[in-house]
Amino acid sequence: MNRPNASGSSIESEQLRPIAAAAKAREPMNVLIVGVGGQGVIMVSKALASLAQSKGFEVKQSEVHGMAKRGGTVFSHVRFGPQVWSPTIPKGEADILVALEWAEGLRWLAYLKPDTGIFICDTKRIVPPFACLNRRPGSPLRYSRETPAEVKAHVAEGYAIDATHMAEELGNERVGNVVLIGALSTALDFSAEDWEKSLAQFVPKKTIAVNLDAFRLGRNWIAEARTNPAKIESPATKTAAPAHVPYSVRLEITAEWCKSCDICVKLCPERCLRLNEERIAELAQPEKCTGCRLCELLCPDFAIKVHLDSPKQGVAA
């Protein structure tokens, strides 16, 4: 079954830990690469797949296109070994999870092998518009709150790396994914030269130099993280939610000034206003109103005033 130069034993080499222990014998090596549309997930997986194939392994690389360009989740399964069946990695069987974005890394954590899986994650946060929909004062951002330290405690081996920032320091924020390839390269038994050769095929000619710098930066970062873990601890991403002040909203609508133009009704983000039978604006669904003041600001006739009443202090703000 073995391809002529696909030796299963070569990926068991001793010198470079972690060389995912489970990649022994005939089981394929499973690498899951995840991120957000536009970050270069597919490029990372192509570089790895091409390298593995050039070494004589059978390779399957599977992803789902379609929504990827539109800021959605992107993931690519790369499996290689003497024989690969399923194009997707079963849950709990990824040897390595490479994440180009923090919350995406957390989304796929359950795919890692619990005892030996290696987690390599950029601390870059891409906050989707969905996380910022609540206009209530003090409302929390709906984004993952786990810190790198918490995540590291839950995986066999974890690295939170500020790859995007490192790429910016190299002068090209787009090579963040290549910093992560550098980090990934230390967990697989391919030589740095082979990696660099594979990379060069997948980046624009003009950017080969900066991409190779990014690769080496990621590779060295891991080496340093292993020898001196404390030094490279990335900053905590947990941000304290602003203190929440309880309040209730009261709309003061001056009926005589309202000319039924409908602007407040149509542009209310919560859609909680309507025109009553006299075609005067009124608050139809007070429980939905967040007190964002948009109606007050948009009313051409100054007919709406928003009061945020706090039970303790009377009128807040």
């Binding site: 800021g71 959605g72 919350a103 957390l106 359950a110 989707p128």
Partner: peptide, 13 residues
């Protein structure tokens, strides 16, 4: 497994 609430990231315009 660690019960994490995944971030909602629907595709957007």
């Amino acid at each position: 497994s660690w019960a994490l609430e995944p971030l909602a990231r629907p595709p957007v315009l």
